[in-house]
Amino acid sequence: MKNTISRDIHDPAFLSGKPRPLGRGNRAVATAIMVALVLALALRIVASGAINWSITFGFFFHPAILDGLVMTLELTALSMIVGVLLGIALAVMAISRYPAVSAASALYVWIFRGTPLLVQLIFWFNIALVFPVVGIGAWQVSINSLVTPFAAALLGLGLNEAAYMAEIVRAGIKSVDSGQGEAAVSVGLNRRQVMNSVILPQALKVIIPPTANQTIGMLKNTSLVSVIGAQELLTKTEDIYARNFQVIELLIVASLWYLVLTTVASAFQFWLERRFGDSRAVEVIAGAQP
């Protein structure tokens, strides 16, 4: 800083205006290092010749891969539906006046959030070892025929998701000002009406963004069900590379599809958060101030 000139406020020749930010030079250096690292890694992978890219692109729209993709989407959607509905029920149970009911909810969350999802999936797949049949008398059904890999996957993913959704919904309910419930009971609404017509609609603003986050997580978590052979994207991918031994090429196919799904879901989440994230602020701006 040898050229720094010191002037006081009485000097008429002071420089006026917005100062230039420091650190422009550092930024260029950082950019150069990052570009060089990424290029070096990309060149290394391509130059090695170990990856046969034509196989990757050849299998990208393979019917089996697309079937697996559809199954992944189905599992994600159905598991989230199970998770959200059961999660709301668990959250309402958690704030029950009856200690046994809230304890049951806490026990559920403790077990399903406290054990690995992978373990839960294998557990549901093998549930017939504990309960071979359900039903009474003439209406007995073998659990083995009931719990297909798809059903076990749905049970495992949905019941696990419910534990996380319960916490999200509970936080949403708690975020609503207690005055809302008081106003609602003061005009004669019963408990169910207060929850359904006043509390939950206002809790949505807090519930929706993390739920979108959970959905993105679920898209990837469905890959875990490959261990029980539910025919989703990763299982289909594994089936193919078990026959042609092009392991990395096919894992890249699966990874690219997961990236496509999560990118689309993230864009949807961005839209959702703008729509619901801070609706009050949006309304104040949009509404004519009287």
Partner: peptide
């Protein structure tokens, strides 16, 4: 009942 903080349903 009319509340200090209005408590209108938001």
């Amino acid at each position: 009942m009319v509340f200090q903080r209005f408590n209108l349903f938001g």
